[in-house]
Simulated assay, not measured.
Amino acid sequence: MELLVPPPPGSGKSLMERVEDSLLPLINLVFLLLMFFMVAGQMAATPLPELPNVSEPRSPQSPEADLLVKSGTDWSVEGQSVNADTLLSTLSEPEANRELRIAADRTVTMSDLERLFRLLEDGGYENVILLTEPRQ
Rank of each mutant, 00 (worst) to 15 (best):
A65D: 09
S81R: 15
M35Y: 11
N28H: 04
N83L: 05
V77P: 09
D85G: 03
E56M: 02
R58M: 11
L34I: 01
T109H: 12
S22N: 04
L91M: 09
A44R: 15
S14R: 09
G79R: 15
E17L: 03
P7I: 00
M43E: 11
P49H: 07
W75K: 10
L116Y: 07
V77R: 07
A103S: 15
E20T: 05
L91S: 04
G123T: 00
I129N: 05
M1A: 07
L100Q: 14
Q42T: 03
S62R: 15
L68I: 08
E114Q: 08
E99G: 05
F36Q: 08
L67S: 09
D105V: 01
G10F: 06
P60A: 10
P63D: 11
L34C: 10
R101G: 05
V128M: 14
L120N: 05
S62H: 12
R106H: 07
D74L: 11
L130A: 06
G10M: 01
M1P: 10
E93R: 06
F36L: 14
N127S: 11
Q61H: 04
E99I: 05
T109D: 11
P7S: 12
P47R: 13
T107D: 13
P63I: 07
N28A: 10
R118V: 00
N53M: 02
P9K: 02
L48H: 09
R98H: 12
L68P: 00
E20G: 08
L24N: 06
P47Y: 08
V54P: 00
E2L: 13
G79M: 13
S14Y: 05
L29Y: 05
R101H: 15
P60G: 04
R101K: 15
L23C: 13
T46K: 15
F37Q: 13
L130C: 02
L33Q: 12
R135M: 11
P57L: 10
L131I: 14
F117P: 00
L119V: 03
L15Q: 09
G123R: 00
R115I: 03
A65N: 07
A45D: 07
N53F: 04
P47G: 06
R118H: 04
L87I: 05
N28E: 05
E2W: 09
Q80V: 15
D85T: 12
D21G: 11
L120Q: 03
A96K: 11
